[in-house]
Design a protein around this nucleic acid. Structure first.
Length: 477
RNA sequence: GGUCCCAUCGUCUAAUGGUUAGGACACCAGGUUUUCAUCCUGGAAAUAGGGGUUCGACUCCCCUUGGGAUCACCA
């Protein structure tokens, strides 16, 4: 059987949004599940849209997600170069072949003329077909020195386009979908339509995964494959990713995020990967949380969804929380850059922060929540009369209770067990429900009504800090 | 306008002719717990509509409706 070789072929025009990344993910997962190769090819044939640094950004994004590139601009391979602007000679060679075989001609019309034809067709509510304006065969020609002077067009043949798509099944289109399209632009660069076909062949790509926007142009590709005498790779159409409210394809305008934004918000690579894989693919079981490897192990193209999926942030957050909880605290700690911690944390040792993380891990959904959840571990709380309120506790009871607690804690070892024993005993002595006194101490020690378990929190804060804070709180009453 | 694609709870999806249409997120209600979170239990929630085919249709066919793609010297 032919080696499985898939590719991701973005153009370096800026951000890499989640839809594109999900397509890359599927192509990668399919290659990996078949011991195949995943190729990254940069399609930079439109100089005007190219954005500086975009290629590096694409590479970094894939790397972060764990989508490893076997061959590409950043990974040597035998079938490169993997950047289209470095392959112009190859396209020229194939173009010459088409010319020799009578499948290409130089454009007899100016851009303005073509635009006019198109406008006319639009007014008549007719589809615009260039081939209807193609001069008769006897007048068709290829200008000498055409390269970089005029555009080279493909002379299509007419047939009933039919093909098989692994995801969508048998597809077909009308003859109206066949037309003479530009192979080589006037600037000497090939169009996508031409270049990707040459490259996929040269790079021995076995399966093409791409978005459904390419279904409409597949008939044109089929005509070109035929003219070049190439057997097309297998094709699989990926379902679109839609924005949350509307049914539109997710685009930058809808706030489509660049994948690396999820990294900067503190999402885990595995969480985002798991989430993206679940949009348009499932393994048929009821499992929801997958590791990257589990996805590869169970991946098949046949289980890819036909219809589009809406992007649901809540699900991503939930999945990410799951991955965070599943991870050993030490490993998680290593993934959290300093910038995620509150500023005051820089004064604390990394051992201390690790302990804090241990307490927060089960409620942390993504790292950007860290400052809010952890601030009081690093900074003195700022409380006043009002913050030290406890339900079911009379205001006059607070001061004596706090005083008694301070005395009690002063005599206690700050281990979780000892603290629990001592404070439960205190509650009993005072004839109060444990929750009542715990609530008071939580606020006094942290300035917050919400915190991890009280004993664990006090143990991490330590005796000195705890007693200092309780005394301060007492002063405020 | 032409050509093409898609259609199960609000969302992600399972069920490839026979299920009380399943799971998950979110939501609601209980429980565990010192608060929050976690965890556990339960609830509400879907086959777009209409025709066929069939003993039987989410599943196959047709029409309608709705959504989407595309018709560049962009990819």
């Amino acid at each position: 059987m032919q080696e499985v070789r898939t590719r991701f072929a973005p153009s370096p025009t800026g951000l890499l949004h989640v839809g594109a990344v999900r397509t890359a993910l599927f192509a990668w997962a399919f290659a990996k599940s078949n011991n195949g190769k995943f190729i990254l090819r940069i399609e930079d044939t439109d100089k005007s849209r190219e954005v500086q640094g975009a290629t590096e950004h694409i590479i970094e994004s894939l790397e972060w997600l764990g989508i490893s590139v076997d061959e590409g601009p950043n990974a040597p391979g035998d079938l490169g170069p993997y950047i289209q602007s470095m392959r112009l000679d190859i396209y020229k060679r194939y173009a010459q072949q088409l010319i020799n075989d009578g499948h290409a001609y130089t454009d007899p019309y100016s851009t303005a003329q073509v635009a006019e034809f198109r406008e006319e067709a639009k007014l008549l509510k007719q589809p615009f077909l260039y081939r209807q304006f193609r001069p008769e065969d006897s007048k068709l020609k290829v200008e000498e020195d055409w390269y970089k002077k005029s555009t080279l067009r493909f002379k299509t043949t007419i047939f009933k386009p039919e093909w098989h798509d692994i995801v969508r099944g048998d597809l077909s289109a009308g003859e109206e979908s066949l037309d003479d399209f530009v192979l080589i632009k006037a600037d000497g660069y090939p169009t996508y339509n031409f270049a990707h076909i040459v490259d996929d062949f040269e790079m021995k790509i076995s399966h093409i995964m791409r978005g459904e926007e390419f279904i409409a142009s597949t008939p044109k590709f089929l005509a070109l494959y035929k003219a070049l005498g190439i057997t097309p790779p297998k094709m699989a159409t990926m379902p679109p990713i839609l924005n949350q409210n509307g049914g539109k394809k997710l685009s930058k305008r809808d706030g489509a995020k660049d994948v690396l934004e999820y990294r900067s918000q503190g999402f885990l690579s595995e969480g985002v990967f798991n989430f993206l894989a679940g949009m348009g693919w499932n393994d048929g079981t009821e499992q929801e949380v997958f590791s990257r490897q589990e996805i590869v192990d169970n991946f098949t193209l046949e289980r890819i969804q036909k219809s589009g999926a809406k992007f649901d942030d809540q699900r991503l957050v939930w999945l990410n929380g799951h991955h965070i909880r599943n991870m050993p605290t030490k490993d998680l700690f290593k993934l959290i850059d300093d910038e995620f911690w509150p500023e005051a944390a820089s004064k604390s040792s990394s051992d201390y922060r690790l302990e804090v993380l241990g307490l927060l891990q089960e409620r942390l959904k993504y790292f950007a929540e860290l400052p809010e959840l952890s601030e009081f571990f690093f900074e003195e709380p700022n409380y006043n009369q009002l913050t030290i309120k406890v339900k079911k506790l009379d205001d006059t009871q607070r001061a004596p209770l706090l005083k008694a607690s301070i005395e009690c804690l002063d005599q206690t070892d700050f281990t979780v067990e000892a603290l629990e024993l001592a404070l439960r005993e205190l509650a009993q002595t005072k004839n109060l429900k444990p929750g009542t006194i715990f609530g008071l101490l939580r606020i006094a020690a942290t300035g917050s009504q919400v915190a991890p378990g009280l004993f664990e929190t006090l143990a991490v804060l330590g005796k000195e800090t705890t007693l200092r804070r309780l005394t301060q709180a007492l002063d405020q009453l």
